[in-house]
Amino acid sequence: MPSQTVPGDTLAATYAVGTAASIRISAVIGDGQLGDSAVWLDTKLLTTGDVNHFDIGSAAQLRGHQLKFRSIASDLNPQTNRTSVSYFLAGGTTDDDYTLTKQVANDGDSVVYEATFQLV
């Protein structure tokens, strides 16, 4: 699936895990802004902070579960008020990535992003 840019701070999508031995995820806070992410598999917290090629398990372990990201992007960059978070899922049937974008109203503001993926 090609890259998708989604205006807004919330995303719900599905991800086909196929028969992968390993599914890896990343969350990239863009536009030079400051931020962090947390990732859950159903209700279990997997990781927090900088999520970069994080291995969440095999297709057999993941199918039927829900993967949830929550990210905070803060307007650190004085050159733009735009914030963005890109979520990458790799190793399944396809490598997918979604970029969510939202502009803050005031200098130094923050945006809370959430993305959930049904793993099928």
Binding site: V28, I29, G30, G32, Q79, T80, R82, S84, S86, T101
Partner: peptide
Amino acid sequence: APYWLTNRPALTFAQY
């Protein structure tokens, strides 16, 4: 400053 007239979603804080 032309660089900032477009979106830069791939630019991380560390790179900036």
